[in-house]
Write a protein that binds this DNA or RNA. Sequence first.
DNA 1: CGTCTATTTGAATGTACTCAAAAGCGGTGG
DNA 2: CCACCGCTTTTGAGTACATTCAAATAGACG
Lengths: 194, 194
Amino acid sequence: MNELKLIENIRRYVNLNDEEAQTFISFWTERNLSKGEYLLRNGEICRFDTYVASGALKAYFINAQSGKEEMLFFAIDDWWASDLVSFSTQKPSIYSIQAIEHSTILQIGYQSFQEMLKKLPVMERYFRIILERYLGSLQKRIIYNQAYDARFRYQDFIETYPEIAAKVPQYLIASYLGVSAEFISRIRRGKKGS
Amino acid sequence: MNELKLIENIRRYVNLNDEEAQTFISFWTERNLSKGEYLLRNGEICRFDTYVASGALKAYFINAQSGKEEMLFFAIDDWWASDLVSFSTQKPSIYSIQAIEHSTILQIGYQSFQEMLKKLPVMERYFRIILERYLGSLQKRIIYNQAYDARFRYQDFIETYPEIAAKVPQYLIASYLGVSAEFISRIRRGKKGS
DNA sequence: CGTCTATTTGAATGTACTCAAAAGCGGTGG
DNA sequence: CCACCGCTTTTGAGTACATTCAAATAGACG
């Protein structure tokens, strides 16, 4: 069931026949995370690539000065949730990933991932596309944070990611947008004339 | 000469024998850009991957509200300067890249790039590494913009990229850091007790 | 030198933050 | 079914970090 979700996702970007899909699936392991459980902790090496079949995760790093969590991204149903840099280089991650509700994930270890790519070279393309899309979203985010005010960014966020806005508490979205939770509240209150 | 610089760069990450290096080099074309010349304009498709042998380029996008340029990155000697997303997808870019001084670059077209990868599969690895490093720098930048104040970010910038700080006008660095040019000036003035 | 661009300085202002407290919401147990 | 608890959101008041606009300097280049 969950494997099919992942295959469906992949087939949006590359062609994969049923046999290849079967081979691909055999590399992955399903796992459940309860609320609050960690997928990865700051300083650890990201040893698995993780696909989120259902649930919600947050990736954040701790501000050394204020001690507060700064959100890097969210991952909900049908998204990826790994530190791609740490996974690819097998070096320690600079952030943590934690479940914010019960989640079901599919995982593949680093070695298996390499084997899988050898058996199914077409997947190189898929993962390059995923990487590029993530890159694009990071660029957009940098640009938007520089260029636009908190109100604009908040409204853009809820339009771009309505499913996340519906699931994730506001104070986490505030952190993602680089704004205080209180200010998001004020934005929502005075949103009439938009 | 400039080709050797690129080969040297590549050999920092992957092994390439002299024959492979020759093959690789044959795909690239040298080109000169004079100050102010554009490598890419917002809305155009990025048709070349570009290595900067010497000089300095800025990548920026125009804020629709204020009309101001918002810096996305700089590329100086021995760096890459392309919109990787636009190049890979062959879709229009959302930003522009322009020479801020006379620059010498090496370029490869989209089709040639694909052929080159077929002939030299080892280069897949190199370009994935470059992509990941860029990804890491974007993540760091997002985190730092959220977490730290302008003074900290400025000081981190000049420590991390002293060569850029030496070459690029302050008002462009200000834009890169998401700060006004005037405020950077004030930071520098009051930096005694750092 | 004069011109054009870049940087600095001043004064007033604004956007968003902090701290503290109150209100809302959802679940759990008596 | 209501009371209570923990967590999230809202509200208020005071404040800070950084901005804007305007003008003065300082640098670079022909």
